[in-house]
């Protein structure tokens, strides 16, 4: 079954058309990496999947629910779609524990004990159980991002969205976050990942989508899109990403 089904998605900001007819699906358990130059609409596409941006036209179906249907309860739909941001966006005034429990408690109405159990389980998973009583500003960027992943996972999402999760990190901290994501993929999580980490895309992704100018230029397995791109624009982009400065 497909977890995400996007049909003819358009998105404009005023007169600027950022997404110009996107069609693609993510099958359940698949990892799809989205690559493309800056401004090509990758973040906008991702944000349309949980309706942080309202699509101008087209349909976005997640878990069989059409999110563009005006009658749909968007808050209920978002509970099952985890999102990880480039800037982490942890709640700085709350402890790590509270960051991971607050939505469970307020949104899913889980009991205190249950919230705590789930928080520990997920912090364990990202290797940060010892930071459970710390505040986000006391953590490194890499640690904050892993807490953010735990926070999203605590809601038992059926889909995880990642928007350049390692772009704001110092190079030596990237590995820890990618390792967590790799583990998540191995465990069968459905993931849609905007990234510039070509190594990760090549090794972990089932499919790689190359976007440029608000359209999908190329969509296929990594060994095709990254290793043997069919389009000149993809080749040009990959040349710049894989051999910067050349």
């Amino acid at each position: 079954m497909s977890t995400v089904e996007i049909k003819n998605l358009h998105k404009s900001f005023g007169s600027l058309e950022v997404l110009r007819g996107i069609d693609f699906t993510v099958e359940s358990g698949q990892v799809v990496c989205v690559i493309g130059p800056s401004g090509s609409g990758k973040s906008t596409l991702l944000r349309c999947v949980n309706l942080l941006e309202q699509p101008t036209s087209g349909t976005v179906v997640v878990d069989g629910v059409d999110l563009t249907d005006p009658d749909v309860d968007i808050d209920a739909a978002r509970r099952h779609i985890g999102m990880v941001f480039q800037q982490f966006n942890l709640f700085p005034h709350l402890t790590v524990r509270r960051n991971v429990t607050i939505a469970q408690e307020r949104v899913l109405k889980r009991s205190k004990g249950e919230c705590d159990r789930v928080a520990r389980e997920n912090l364990e998973k990202v290797g940060l159980i010892e930071k459970i009583d710390a505040y986000p500003p006391q953590l490194s960027g890499g640690q904050q991002q892993r807490v953010a992943i735990a926070r999203a996972l605590a809601m038992n999402p059926s889909l995880m969205l990642f928007d350049e999760p390692t772009s704001a990190l110092d190079p030596e901290l990237v590995g820890d976050v990618l390792a967590v994501m790799r583990k998540l993929a191995e465990d069968g999580m459905t993931m849609l990942v905007v990234t510039h980490e070509m190594g990760f895309a090549r090794e972990v992704a089932d499919r790689v989508v190359f976007m440029d100018g608000g359209v999908i230029v190329e969509d296929g397995p990594p060994e095709q899109v990254i290793a043997d791109p069919q389009h000149e624009r993809t080749r040009e982009f990959l040349r710049r990403v894989l051999h910067p400065g050349v």
Binding site: N50, L52, D75, A76, R78, R79, I81, G82, M83, F85, Q87, N89, L90, F91, I102, A103, R106, V107, L108, A148, R151, A152, M155
Partner: peptide
């Protein structure tokens, strides 16, 4: 308060 805070909260399903 940075815009990302509201987005993070909404993405967790908070009204």
């Amino acid at each position: 308060v940075p815009k990302g805070q509201l987005e993070a909260a909404r993405s967790l399903g908070m009204p």
